[in-house]
Computed example of a mutant assay.
Amino acid sequence: MQGVQAIIDHPITLLVIGALVGAFLNYVFLKFQNKTSVLGFTRSVVRVAVSAEDALFGSIRVMLGEQQVRNLFLCTIEVENMSSTDQENVKFKVYTGNDTCLYNVSAVVMDTPYAIPLTDEFTEFLKIPEGQQVSQVQLDRVRHERDYQVVALNRDQKLKFTCLCQKLNDDNDPYVTISTPNKGIRLKEQKQPFEVLNPIFGVPVARARVRAVLLAVPVIFICGLLIDNIWISLSVVLLYGLLALACGSIFYKIERAIRSFVAG
């Protein structure tokens, strides 16, 4: 009995039990999370040109073909499959408000040679019967939205939609966004595009930060229970604080690799 009690009272036992409980809670969380697949997306806007009339410097005219337009913007939407499952036949709608006009949209699967096709319904809608002209209904719809269908969107894969558009009533940034009608899929806009687009070791800072906080718990336990010298403990904690985001990024990569292996 004394041997069993000694094992129970040993600090390592507490750490092992804590790790097992954490792993179980993480498993339950992932099971719950994967009921709805989350696709993260970011939006960015670049002003291409603006028409202007100036008595001193003269006039600036922005032409699209032979038509003069008020302004031109390039809006980019990037979508990433952040879930642990591969998705099939995912439909996306890229759309704007009534004060924005879409001219051209490029849709591609990033880091691949594949373009994203329009849906069959949208392609059929765009067809012009022989001997007729484009209808006003067609013009109204194509000026404000596009419908796409991705055959396969694998884990961590990204899509890119680049839209050339005009803001009709003013020169403020246009609002172009994206949605999906697919059941069990949720689009979530990333609120910190700087952190998303400037990763550490290829991992977004927001995700690395979460893993760094989780890793801090065992580091504190190890320093508090297993290291008797307080200066060594403080040094280890300080070193971890300096390398926390890097450790979080590495932990995230290991986590994704394990999840991909388990999921097949």
Rank of each mutant, 00 (worst) to 15 (best):
E121F: 00
K31G: 11
Q67T: 09
L118M: 11
T162G: 04
Y103F: 15
V28L: 13
I60D: 13
G241W: 06
A263R: 10
Y95F: 15
I77M: 01
L187F: 05
A23Q: 09
F73N: 03
T96A: 15
T96D: 07
M110I: 12
I230M: 09
F32H: 11
L243N: 08
G248I: 03
T42H: 03
N89P: 09
N98R: 14
V142G: 02
N169P: 03
V210L: 11
L242C: 08
V176C: 03
V94Q: 01
I77C: 00
L25N: 08
T13C: 09
Y175N: 09
L225I: 00
I12R: 06
D170L: 05
P218R: 10
I17G: 06
N34E: 14
Q133N: 12
E80A: 07
D86G: 09
N71R: 06
D54K: 02
C75E: 03
E124K: 07
P129N: 12
P174M: 03
I222V: 15
M110V: 14
F32D: 08
K127R: 13
A246S: 13
K91M: 11
A208E: 07
N71A: 07
D111I: 06
P193A: 11
V69A: 06
K253S: 14
G131A: 07
V105E: 02
L20N: 04
D99W: 09
K158E: 06
K188T: 10
Q157D: 14
C163Y: 00
R207I: 05
T85E: 12
F29I: 07
R61T: 12
V137Q: 11
G58L: 04
G264W: 08
A216S: 13
A115S: 13
L168W: 02
R61Y: 11
N154A: 14
D228L: 06
S83H: 03
F251C: 10
S233Y: 02
F24G: 08
I178N: 00
F194D: 10
Q166V: 04
T100Y: 08
F161M: 02
K253Q: 15
G264L: 13
V90Q: 06
E78R: 03
Y27Q: 10
Q67Y: 11
R209T: 12
K31E: 08
I77T: 01
S233I: 00
V262P: 00
V151D: 07
Q68H: 07
V46F: 11
L126H: 03
G241S: 10
I258Q: 14
M1F: 11
K160S: 15
E255T: 15
G40A: 06
V134I: 14
E189D: 06
D111A: 13
K167P: 00
L126A: 08
F161I: 02
